[in-house]
Simulated assay, not measured.
Amino acid sequence: MNEELLLAAKRRLRTEMTRRRRTIPEAEREAASRAMCGTLCALPRYQAARTVFAYASMPEEVQLDGLLARALADGKRVAIPWITGRGTMEAVELPSLAVLERGAYGIRNVPDHLRRAVAPEEIDLAIVPGAAFTAEGARLGLGGGYYDRYLGERARGAYRIALAFDALLTAEVPMAAHDIDVAEIITESRHLVCRKKR
């Protein structure tokens, strides 16, 4: 598939999955999020991780505030993305949920005066968002390439797990050579150890 066709296929799938995600009722989203975070925290990979890279959720995403609070309470260093430019980001340490403020693109983040970078090679576990996933670990990102660049090029040692609603699993995801996949997927009803490894 040439690049133009690949991008068009990604756009179509992203639009469909965004529509699906919006139809999930808030109460169902909250319950599903709690179930996924509980499953994740029981995993040896989570328990052994010293530095966890996650994200401050947008309203329609899997809600991770409970996970962020749990990881901090468990004594882990928690990092979240800081957008530094078009398609680029850094990991910054999250000292507490209370410091988060809404910034660019409506994303909650650590304010400037508290921002401390975390070296990519120090991240043990990355919780990866996405618009769609296959059971084999293929991932459709949200369109900016931020995670593909950061995890695929800079934080290559981070173990990648996705928390995703059942509705976002699909049979096929169009992927380019530089697109990252995930090693495991946790949904509200399943825990998938993915066969695809790149």
Rank of each mutant, 00 (worst) to 15 (best):
N2A: 06
N2S: 11
L5Q: 14
L6T: 06
L7M: 02
L7K: 00
K10R: 10
L13R: 01
R19E: 06
R21Y: 01
R21N: 03
P25T: 03
P25N: 08
R34K: 14
A35Y: 09
A35T: 15
A48L: 13
A48P: 09
R50D: 15
F53M: 03
A54N: 04
A54V: 00
S57K: 11
D65C: 01
D65V: 05
A69H: 13
A69V: 00
R70K: 14
A73Q: 11
D74N: 07
D74G: 02
V78H: 13
A79E: 07
P81D: 02
T84G: 02
G87V: 04
T88D: 09
E90G: 01
S96V: 11
L97G: 02
G103T: 03
G106M: 14
I107T: 10
R108A: 10
N109C: 09
P111K: 00
L114G: 11
D124N: 14
V128D: 02
A132L: 03
E136L: 12
L140C: 08
L140M: 02
G141S: 05
L142I: 06
Y146A: 10
Y146S: 08
R149G: 05
G152H: 11
E153M: 14
I161A: 06
F165R: 04
A171M: 01
V173H: 09
D181T: 13
V182H: 14
V182S: 12
A183H: 15
E184D: 09
E184C: 13
E184W: 09
I185D: 08
S189I: 08
S189L: 09
H191G: 01
V193F: 07
V193C: 15
R198C: 06
